[in-house]
Nucleic acid binder design. Structure first.
Length: 455
RNA sequence: GUGAGCGUAGCUCAAUUGGCAGAGCACUCGGUUGUGGUCCGAGUGGUUGCCGGUUCGACCCCGGUCGCUCACCCCA
């Protein structure tokens, strides 16, 4: 806060006084106009240097979606705030302190989406997707927003790619998602293991929470401050506390798997059986819980391999959310889903030096010299493109030297040189960039000749 | 929201005890007519994040502030 030494004055008043006092008063420095505009905190440009990772990630996601029968869906980046409050949960950190919310010009309370599942369930319900063959399998990709302190693997705008299966409650769905996610990471060259747990449905989770509270309250003096807070806010979270002093209490605490009802237990066992049969390695993790209210029964999380146990943030996570559709006011709908953090995956790909395909480089550069030649070069370039010959050019450059320099940097195999002389003669020079050998060919035969040379 | 470290050119980093703010890379131009890589030369580029204090003098020391990074909380 600026120190208020004087009462606030109107602008004209201030200006008048400033004029009077001009010779003596220190003049406030004018706002800098030459400095570069700044990025909002937690926002990041994704520059061309990174493009190949994003392209590969999106392409791989789409390949998996097609292979496993997921249809693409895009939902708005902005939704009514209430959608997330109801879906994610009023008591969660996301809703309590991380949402970008504001009133729009019409006075409606809106929010930049912090996650996509709520929107997808809304779309499923509002478009009556329960009337088409079930289950409905959808995938999405796009930016999400959470107002947090940025750090490694976390920014305020980040991107998720996710897969959702709605309208089916069978354990095969849970297993399919875990399997797809597992194969997806492998295809990207990212080593990770999947941790799996069941947190039951509300009917078995609530008694468990009570048992957990009883256990922890009896030993209140032995646990950390964070855990004390967790007990009142989100009791399940004490189970993944990493503080050493809490470990004894945690290890002797009741486990959710012992509190599952018959249905939830059977469901979970079947999920694990399918994973076993599919030879998908998983880690049973009794303390794994989720931070969003809508999860129930199966929950899972992909943690990068190699790091310290526990200290790693998840690359992706998911689970079953059978109750969500009803919470949003729709008909009861079984569903499950999975989401990955794209920035986190890309960070691991880079660390692991995962092989990422490059965009095919141009094999020829078309250089032009003079007004006439430039006009003709545009036509020729279009012919090259239509012929499927990847070409580069820089029509705004005038000196041949500069154009050759660009051709060299691009690493093309051949340079085409079209100057005044060639235009008059109806010819073209083809220069082999490695050997420096040049030959003159007829303009009309150039495409054919290049095709032959490039094989 | 809490804690720690760091802010010098587009990038990577120098600058002796407090004494003229520099290099490499990149970029632009040139080394004679229409030919790239290597080489040589020149040039552009800075309110040393910002504000204040100490001092004859501050990139350097002190205070504040903003930003970045990392960690906690929480999360993908």
């Amino acid at each position: 806060m600026a120190k208020e030494k004087k009462a606030i004055k109107s602008k004209p008043q201030v200006l008048e006084e400033a004029a009077k006092a001009a010779p003596k008063e220190k003049v406030v420095a004018p706002p800098r106009t030459s400095s570069a505009p700044e990025l909002l905190r937690g926002m990041r440009d994704i520059l061309p240097a990174e493009a190949k990772y994003w392209r590969f990630l999106r392409k791989t996601a789409e390949d998996f979606a097609v292979a496993y029968g997921f249809d693409c869906i895009e939902t708005p980046i902005m939704e009514p705030t209430n959608l997330f409050v109801r879906a994610v949960g009023k008591q969660t950190d996301i809703v309590e302190k991380e949402m970008y919310s504001f009133d729009d010009q019409g006075g409606e309370r809106v929010t930049l989406r912090p996650e996509a599942t709520a929107s997808i369930v809304r779309a499923y319900l509002s478009h009556g997707m329960f009337n088409i063959p079930q289950p409905v399998k959808l995938w999405y990709e796009g930016p999400m927003f959470r107002y947090e302190r940025p750090q490694a693997g976390r920014s305020r705008e980040f991107h998720q790619v996710g897969f959702e299966i709605l309208g089916e409650g069978k354990p095969a769905v849970d297993a399919e998602l875990i399997i797809v996610g597992n194969a997806f990471l492998r295809a990207l060259g990212v080593a990770a293991s999947v941790q799996v747990n069941s947190i039951g449905h509300a009917g078995c989770r609530d008694p468990f929470k009570a048992a957990l509270l009883q256990h922890y309250r009896a030993r209140r003096s032995e646990i950390c401050e964070d855990c004390k807070r967790r007990l009142t806010r989100n009791p399940l979270r004490v189970l993944d506390c990493k503080i050493p002093e809490c470990q004894p209490v945690k290890n002797s605490s009741p486990q959710i798997v012992d509190h599952l009802c018959d249905d939830c237990r059977t469901h979970f066992m079947k999920v694990l059986e399918i994973l076993d049969e599919a030879d998908v390695p998983y880690v049973l993790t009794p303390h794994l819980v989720r931070g969003l209210d809508y999860y129930g029964r199966t929950v899972f999380e992909y943690v990068p391999a190699g790091g310290e146990e526990g200290a790693q943030s998840a690359l992706g996570a998911g689970g079953r959310y059978d109750g969500l559709a009803e919470i949003l006011g729709g008909r009861a709908t079984s569903a499950a889903g999975l989401a990955f953090g794209m920035e986190r995956i890309i960070a691991r790909m880079r660390e692991a030096n995962a092989p990422v395909p490059e965009l095919p480089a141009p094999s020829i550069f078309l250089a032009q010299l003079g007004e006439h030649a430039r006009r003709k070069a545009f036509a020729l370039f279009e012919k090259l493109r239509a012929a499927g010959i990847r070409s580069a050019a820089n029509f705004s450059k005038e000196s041949l030297k500069q154009q050759m320099e660009i051709a060299g940097k691009l690493g093309v195999r051949y340079a085409l040189i079209l100057g005044q002389k060639e235009v008059l003669e109806g010819t073209l020079i083809i220069r082999d960039m490695d050997s420096g050998v040049q030959e003159i060919v007829g303009y009309e035969k150039a495409i054919e000749e290049l095709r032959r040379k490039l094989g």
